[in-house]
Amino acid sequence: MSLSRLQIATDILAAQTRAGEARACRAHSGMGAGDAGAAAPLALGATAVDRCLEGGLACGGLHEVRSPLARDIGAAAGFVLGLAVRAGQAGRGGRQGVVWVSDPAARVDGGGLFPAGLAQHGLDPSLITMVEPADLQGALWAADEAADCAGLAALVLQIRGNPARFDITATRRLMLRARQSGVLALVLRQSGEEEASAAATRWRVNTEISGTDDLDQRGVGAMRLSLTLERNRTGRTGHWFVAWNPQTRTFDHAAPTPVLRSVHPAAHSRHRLSATGHRQDPPRTMGQVLDHRQDFGRAS
């Protein structure tokens, strides 16, 4: 009798331990009930990208977007602002505001956000608060504060290069705060290298030749981006061509149309065709003119 009671007690204890472990696991992976980040993920709109991300970006979390060259900043800003628009739209308790924190090093180029351009991009300029601290330390502090603020839709921290102070500890702090508050925290790294960080995903954004313009053969068409998911916590990476649609406020897949541009064969050079992520297979050699990017919707 006493033995069986002891057995039962042990069983109960074991069950409790298992439950506790499961809770801890859930909490660790950010899926705990208390986390605002466990809310619905933020879909980009492009089906293949969303499928690869298993529904979309984790809303309360840190994501890094980097542009390899300084002149790619336009494309990267377009992607980041598109995400911010979607984060404000997703109807998450009336969150709308976007805080844009920029490090002084990122401002030396002299470029700033242009309200008229923002409006055409689909973002109401009056929702943006620009924060321009005098040093990187101030910028990191401001980003931490903003990531804590549950009333925000998105936070963008614009930095340049790979400053030592913005290390894995700083990114983890940002990540944890964003997860608590549910803010979509984005790091816009201008001309930076890949670097270990606590970010849930890391994207590389390059500009891509625009789509055709139906009205004017020589005109500039709708913008397109070449998007590479370089790192993803949940595993899969990939490469896509997307276009931001300011009307529907979604990212759409853009077919890389094989436009022949007699003057500029460089447009079809191999390295421009297939930027791989961390995929195993290297890009195959392509013909001179033919464009085989029919697999634009494919996730690796």
């Binding site: 336009g74 002299g110 700033g112 242009f114 055409q120």
Partner: peptide
């Protein structure tokens, strides 16, 4: 028409 972009996202304070 809506959706046509005529203004840039990034503007240089001083034209270069």
């Amino acid at each position: 028409p809506e959706g046509i972009v005529t203004r840039p996202l990034i503007l240089f304070e001083r034209p270069e």
